[in-house]
Computed example of a mutant assay.
Amino acid sequence: MSERKISIEQHSGIGLAWIGGWLFSIGYLELGFWQGLLGLLVWPYFMGTHFVPAG
């Protein structure tokens, strides 16, 4: 039998940062419930297009 090394990684910090940024954005912009819900869907797209290098 060969021994295999199993590695488990958690990246929950990135998800928590995303949620924190989203909640901060809603509070800072003083958005209502429906605008905040729309922001939940649209905000990651705009963040992705901003941070991906043009190419």
Rank of each mutant, 00 (worst) to 15 (best):
G48L: 03
E3D: 11
I14W: 14
G13F: 12
L29C: 11
S7P: 06
S25P: 00
G55M: 03
G48Q: 02
M47Y: 04
E3H: 08
L41M: 07
G39L: 11
L23E: 08
W18D: 05
G36M: 05
G20P: 03
Y28A: 08
P53R: 08
H50M: 09
V42E: 01
L38Y: 08
F51E: 01
V42I: 12
G27L: 12
W43V: 08
G36D: 00
G32W: 04
I26C: 07
L16H: 09
W18L: 12
G39M: 09
S25G: 04
V52S: 01
W43M: 11
P53W: 05
M1H: 13
M1V: 14
F46P: 01
L41K: 06
H50T: 14
W34P: 00
T49R: 05
G39E: 01
H50K: 11
G20K: 12
W18H: 12
E30R: 12
W43D: 01
L31R: 00
I19D: 07
P44S: 00
W22F: 08
Q35W: 13
G36W: 05
S25T: 14
F51V: 09
F46L: 01
T49K: 07
L37V: 11
F24N: 06
I26F: 07
M1I: 14
M1G: 12
F24R: 09
W22G: 00
G32V: 05
G36E: 00
I14L: 10
V52Y: 04
S7K: 14
P44V: 03
M1S: 12
Q35M: 04
P53C: 01
G27S: 13
L38K: 11
G48R: 05
G55N: 02
V52M: 02
K5D: 07
S25D: 04
H11T: 12
I19A: 13
S12T: 15
F51C: 05
P44T: 02
S2G: 08
Y28N: 09
K5V: 15
G15V: 15
K5A: 10
L23W: 11
M1T: 14
A17T: 10
S12P: 04
K5S: 08
L37M: 05
L29G: 09
F24W: 11
L37C: 03
G27K: 15
F33M: 10
